[in-house]
Amino acid sequence: MNSILSSKRLITILILPGLLVMVFAILAPILLSLYYSMTDWSGFGPMEFIGLANYGEVLANDPTFWRSLYNALMLLLVTVFIQNVFAFMIAAILVNLSDRLSNFLRTVFFIPAILTVVVITKLWVNIMNPNYGLLNKLLEGLHLDFLVHNWLSDPRTALGSIIFITIWHGFGWALLFYYSGLTTVPKELKEAARVDGANLFQTHLSVVIPYMAPVIQAVIIIDITSCLKQMEIVMLATEGGPGNSTQFIAYHLYEQAFRFSKYGYGNAISVLFVIIALSITLMAQRLLASDNTR
């Protein structure tokens, strides 16, 4: 039996299809990207090899690149410290409710998360529309007229609005992750803390949160990748504008290549993007993992 479970032929047959697809559609293009990133090329016609010049240009002369990293960082901070904290609190409330009520509420809270980003974005673009949008009407109704304006085309509120749409869309996932993590916290742990005289808040701080550390870590790592990947909402709502106030790295590279025909340059951003995504995730994993073992 051991011979079958370590049969080279069988292993090859089993892993080959999946691996080939991944090599073909992920690894090969990234290596190609590395090559194109060293060229001055529009995507058509003659190609000129220029070494690392594109990278120098991105890092030294491209404020939009840095702006998009800054925006991703803002999005991440809001996601982790507002959306996640809120989702954790709501999840902690839901696990203490009756099964029926908690099931119902989880279903409701998760609905936006399953919709395509196109519907979500266009929905909020309509809600934030200055002429007929729900948001401005609501503010007028609440006598907050001084807040009424064009949310997505005012540089002061555009990024905030984009961040809001993003965390609104992703809230259900964060909630679901925390909820399923919280259901695994042993009752005895919480009761022991309560016997020791801890109130609900102290119990969470001293017992539940440390127990949940691996889940929190996993969610934060997912947050990091998804904040870096932000693109579709921006593409459909503001196209990075006004100015470059809502640029994100994925949309920046897309625009450079397909709108401004700087294909080689776009690939250099793309390669930097891979490096950033990989290194930040690995760093976060190390950092958070060493935190756990304390």
Binding site: P29, S33, M231, L253, Y254, Y263, N267, F273, V274, A277
Partner: peptide
């Protein structure tokens, strides 16, 4: 990120 494979 899927976006890094779009161009290549």
């Amino acid at each position: 990120p899927i976006h890094t494979t779009l161009l290549p």
